[in-house]
């Protein structure tokens, strides 16, 4: 089976006021389909930069990166957007749901940008996904009518509605209390197991990281 993500000698350098700041300095890794990886490291270690690259939100300065078999260096911004839409699901610490938009519409949003899917079909898929994350009774609630844990479940449903190859979770429990965080984590792990989607989780919580099948620790822009 094709690996979900292949990175070879990735580096990413930011230009800040004419000064080059290396955030990643030669990172190579491979994430197999259905793998469960925790990405840990102190702040400034480059784990956020790596996550942005793995999520197709940013491009490497040098090195090779294949996401779902596609070479990121060969894609223009529009093709990158399509890549994100088709192969990657994001779960953010701050949920990033659209305000004034119902749960089912939030979940259906990636399908809107996929194009060619009728509104009724989008709603059917979004409804099914919300039922899977335990929010079948909250379809038409808006984010401000949902608890933090429920909002994160909506975000997870949105990340999964496109059947991605990779699920990228950036501190998914960071804004939640311990009990809620545990249940969200359990949900992510269940989905990883039942759908074969690779789960890459960025965290600084070693207890959370310990649950992953694999742990990648970063420091000063390299994997240690």
């Amino acid at each position: 089976m094709m690996p979900a993500v292949v990175a070879r000698d990735l580096s990413r350098t930011y230009e800040l006021d004419g000064v080059s700041v290396p955030a990643l300095r030669g990172v190579s890794l491979e994430v197999a389909a259905g793998d469960y990886v925790a990405l840990v490291g102190p702040s400034g270690s480059g784990k956020s930069t790596l996550m942005h690259l793995l999520g197709g939100l940013d491009r490497p300065t040098a090195g090779e990166l294949l996401i779902g078999g596609r070479d990121v260096n060969r894609l223009d911004p529009a093709a990158m957007a399509t890549l994100r839409n088709e192969t990657i699901g994001f779960v953010f610490q701050a949920f990033h749901l659209l305000p004034r938009t119902t749960a089912v519409d939030n979940v259906a949003l990636p399908l809107v940008y996929r194009g060619g899917i009728r509104a009724a079909e989008r709603r059917r898929r979004a409804t099914a996904m919300l039922a899977r994350v335990g929010l079948g009774h909250r379809l038409d609630h808006r984010p401000n009518q949902l608890s933090g844990g429920e909002q994160q479940r909506v975000a997870i449903a949105r990340a999964l509605v496109t059947d991605p190859v990779v699920l990228l979770a950036d501190e998914p429990t960071g804004n939640l209390d311990t009990a809620t965080g545990q249940s969200v984590l359990t949900l992510l792990e269940e989905i990883n197991a039942e759908r074969g989607v690779a789960l890459i989780m960025v965290t600084h919580d070693l207890e959370v990281a310990a649950r992953a099948r694999r742990r990648i620790t970063m420091r000063d822009g390299v994997i240690v």
Partner: peptide
């Protein structure tokens, strides 16, 4: 800005 970022993350192209 954040809404735009999120839309892009889930697959909106610059043109969209």
């Amino acid at each position: 800005t954040r809404e735009i970022g999120l839309r892009k993350a889930v697959g909106a192209r610059p043109r969209d």
